[in-house]
Design a protein around this nucleic acid. Structure first.
Length: 825
RNA sequence: GGGCCUAUAGCUCAGCUGUGGUUAGAGCGCGCCCCUGAUAAGGGCGAGGUCAGAGGUUCGACUCCUCUUAGGCCCA
């Protein structure tokens, strides 16, 4: 962001850049806030915590102060991108890659102590051959790095021996015109660890070390290593305890650490160095190469890697690392492998480089003594900074003179000096976010630390989760969170990452515009977020279908509750039909499973459970069967009111259960339910009465449903044979040899036509032989279909022999006649 | 190259979790049919996987181990 803003305002001062960055950030804060609202995200939108607010900034510095007080902050050298003409460090985003022609050199590093290792003892004038495109970094050389597991060879040529990687022999021999060479020895890289070579330019030694970063795509497999001039070199050098040697100053000129060319600009030394190596017979071959090389985005000059003083948080002082690793096991990681992921990262990571050479951020509250040039981090100074930042924000550091932050009686502890200048660097932004448990949780009365849950994508095991943990352990010696949940990433239909260049990006905002926020939310809920989630046209289409189905179920139930007032018409549980009790049993089971799924953060199970419930239990069975009762019974008939009571319970519970997932739809439906709470989001998950769960009843009904399914199969056959069209055209005959089944069927005989949605049913005993064909595991029943006897009642559509028995209602069955007559009264 | 993760029907998920064992389940979609009093709806029936691939352990593996392939996140 600072780069974007700086490019727009070329020659702005720090305060101006900071103002532009602030406005830029606020613009996106507001955009994002509106987007979150549109997505139905719950939040305290009027008082978000913003890392750029004065209170938060003071919190960041409070965290930093605690680390200083515990002795965890130190200065060290670390290589950064450095522009020699701008005299400044560059962030990754400020580096642009352009083609550049570089000098390439093959240089021999003669072995000094070949007698120390058996494998090289007998070699004649052995040296390790390196290749580099930056000859000017050779003065900074401290080591030669080999891969421990690669094969290396000793290649004899003209009375001397070169050591290079076996895989590179052909390329190197060709490049260096080594015609008749012989391979005299072969060994693994690790066998040479600890040997010494003579330094090509300085009167010192170069250590042979091992590193996994060594590659075989270019060079010799032996890497010239200058810890002050490269990140890999720095990291591997640190492992071997090598110093960070930088013979180059801020203007890109050699210091007196390389007396031979002291004061010369590094770019001007490549040729002199090559000539010098030639003289010393150390150069095997030189050439040129066009390759992509980092340049400064501002002045377009090539940049260098140069170690500069940076501020670090130590992880091994006070055993921060060990304590963090111990603390990781106090946290619940969801999914569980998150523990291994962050554990490995904390175990392996280097000390945290906290300083950045930028101006948009929280300034490091250090002062430099003008007398002795010592950089000072003093608690007394930091406290004054915190105090003023809390009131005025961190601009105060840039706006006010240093005297405002240094107590009058303060003297440099090294030289008693009393003149100081302010530090220019800021803190890493990961420190900003990593301090939220101090800047927010500790600061707000309505919040507590540790937090119940941190929730982010799995990339944050290296980001926020880790920075929070390290700041928290370092500054407070406690975990910042009790649980950490991570989700995967959204991928395209093939499971590949979305990117602009691939053109497979699907914007969530477009989905919201096309299908609505609840459909997008339903999709999120439907996927198992613990893995990566695929998004495609088909998937969205499926979800939109499912959404409509759920919404339609709400609509259907609401329509049938139109004349139902729960206060007046509710029927007691005991008065409900068994079918209704079955439905409430199913609801109770569903609610139980959903509670469990929510508690386990398994939202996709909530989706699948409710969706299947709406489709299978409700739409395809209960609601379908209920239509006869709802449409043809007398308005105030107890059984009709019983069905409405049940529907009311079911919808009420469903809306509460789905409110977190489809908040807009459930709240809209809730409005028609006339409940006490004005919004479903103010209602709680309902407690399901214990009596609703009725296992014996459920088991009887499971059998009935199995028979129903047999009946449906038979009805389908009859439909195919043109015996019937609608199921109400049919009479079902069920025969079974099984006593228990027969008794069950007789017991429920009056209800069977309703359950099967047919006009009549007949149950009969069958001989055992009749059902021998029935496969094992299936119920021993035989179902046959014939057209229902009688004529069709105009009102309830059922066939009956009693239709027309009343002269004043020639097209109605007796049941309908009774209802019609009573309604007239 | 390293750490961690994923791979079950067209789609989304079950199953496999330190406890391997009859014909691998569901819903959607699809096909065919019915209905028209949930209608930019509703109902029924049906066809689809041998569990990414290879090898191993075992009497027996989707389920355990190894490798390979494809993909993801984070590093290098």
């Amino acid at each position: 962001m600072e780069a974007v803003v700086s490019r727009a305002a070329a020659s702005a001062n720090p305060l101006e850049i900071r103002r532009l960055c602030h406005d830029y950030a606020m613009k996106y804060v507001n955009i994002q806030r509106e987007q979150f609202k549109r997505l139905g995200v719950t939040g305290d939108w009027d008082s978000p915590y913003l890392t750029l607010s004065p209170g938060y900034e003071a919190g960041i510095l409070t965290a930093f102060r605690a680390l200083v007080a515990r002795g965890l902050i130190y200065k060290g050298l670390k290589p950064v991108h450095w522009c020699t003409s701008c005299r400044t460090a560059l962030a990754e985003a400020e580096v642009e890659y352009e083609d550049r022609t570089s000098h390439t050199v093959y240089v021999r590093f003669p072995l000094l102590d070949q007698e120390k290792k058996e494998v090289v003892k007998s070699l004649e004038n052995p040296s390790i051959l390196i290749w580099t495109t930056t000859p000017w970094t050779l003065p900074g050389n401290l080591a030669v790095c080999l891969h421990p597991d690669y094969d290396y060879v000793a290649l004899a040529h003209n009375g001397e021996t070169f050591i290079i990687a076996k895989a590179m022999v052909d390329a190197v021999a060709k490049d260096c015109n080594l015609d008749d060479y012989r391979i005299v020895k072969e060994f693994k890289g690790r066998e040479l660890e600890g040997l010494h070579c003579s330094h090509p330019l300085l009167n010192k030694q170069s250590l042979v070390i091992l590193g996994e970063h060594v590659t075989l795509d270019q060079g010799t497999g032996c890497v010239h290593t200058a810890p002050g001039h490269g990140n890999d070199d720095y990291v591997v050098g640190t492992k071997y305890g090598l110093p960070v040697f930088v013979p180059v100053d801020g203007e890109g000129c050699f210091t007196n650490d390389f007396p031979l060319m002291e004061g010369m600009l590094v770019w001007d030394t490549n040729v002199p160095i090559i000539n010098y190596l030639k003289e010393k017979k150390l150069l095997v071959k030189n050439g040129v190469l066009v390759h992509s090389y980092p340049h400064c985005w501002r002045c377009h000059n090539p940049i260098i890697f140069r170690a500069t003083e940076q501020l670090f948080m130590s992880l091994d002082q006070n055993q921060v690392r060990q304590r963090a690793i111990k603390a990781i096991d106090e946290v619940q990681w969801i999914p569980r492998w998150g523990r291994d992921r962050i554990n490995n990262m904390v175990e392996m990571r280097p000390d945290w480089c906290l300083s950045r050479q930028r101006c948009w951020g929280v300034p490091i509250p250090a002062v430099t003594c003008s007398g002795c040039n010592a950089s000072l981090l003093e608690l007394a100074v930091i406290d004054r900074v915190i105090e003023q930042v809390r009131e005025q924000g961190t601009d105060v550091w840039y706006r006010e003179p240093v005297e405002r932050f240094v107590p009058d009686d303060f003297r440099c502890p090294h030289c008693e000096g009393k003149e100081f200048t302010k530090e220019n660097d800021i803190l890493d932004v990961w420190f900003d976010s990593g301090a939220s448990h101090i800047a927010v949780l500790e600061a707000r009365d309505d919040l507590n630390c540790p937090a119940d849950l941190y929730l982010e994508g799995s990339d944050q095991h290296r980001g926020w989760f880790q920075s929070s943990l390290l700041v928290s352990i370092g500054a407070r010696d406690r975990v910042p969170y009790r649980a950490v949940l991570t989700h995967g990433f959204t991928l395209d239909e093939k499971g590949e990452a979305m990117s602009k260049s691939k053109g497979n990006v699907v914007s969530p905002l477009d989905i919201v515009d096309d299908l609505g926020a609840d459909v997008l939310r339903l999709w999120v809920a439907s996927e198992d977020y613990r893995n990566d989630m695929k998004l495609s046209h088909e998937i969205l289409e499926r979800i939109a279908d499912a959404y409509r189905r759920i919404r339609n179920t709400f609509k259907f139930v609401l329509g049938n509750l139109n004349d139902f007032d729960p206060k007046l018409h509710t029927v007691s549980y005991a008065q409900l039909e068994e079918l209704d009790q079955w439905a409430l049993h199913q609801l109770a089971i569903l609610a139980e499973k959903i509670y469990r799924a929510y508690q386990a953060f398994e939202f996709h199970k909530v989706y699948h459970l409710t969706y299947t419930f709406c489709v299978v239990q409700m739409s395809a069975f209960y609601l379908d069967v209920l239509k006869d009762r709802l449409y043809t019974s007398e308005k105030n008939d107890t059984t009709r009111r019983a069905s409405q009571t049940t529907l009311h319970y079911i919808l009420n519970a469903l809306l509460r259960l789905l409110a977190p997932i489809i908040p807009f739809t459930t709240d809209e439906a809730w409005g028609f339910l006339n409940e006490a709470e004005p919004s479903v989001h103010l209602a709680e998950f309902s407690t399901i009465p214990a009596e609703w769960k009725n296992e014996p009843l459920a088991q009887r009904w499971e059998t009935l449903l199995t028979i129903r399914s047999e009946a449906c199969k038979a009805l389908e056959t009859a439909r195919r044979d043109k015996v019937i069209g609608h199921s109400l055209d049919a009479e079902v005959l069920i025969k079974t040899p099984n006593e228990k089944l027969y008794d069950l069927l007789c017991r429920y005989l009056p209800q069977l036509p309703t359950l099967f949605i047919v006009s009549s049913c007949v149950v009969a005993k069958a001989a055992v032989s009749d059902t021998q064909e029935v496969a094992e595991g299936q119920l021993p029943v035989l179902v046959s279909i014939k057209p229902a006897p009688g004529t069709k009642c105009e009102r309830c559509w059922k066939f009956g022999i009693d239709v027309g028995s009343q002269k004043d209602h020639p097209s109605l069955c007796q049941r309908c006649v009774d209802v019609v007559r009573r309604n007239k009264q």
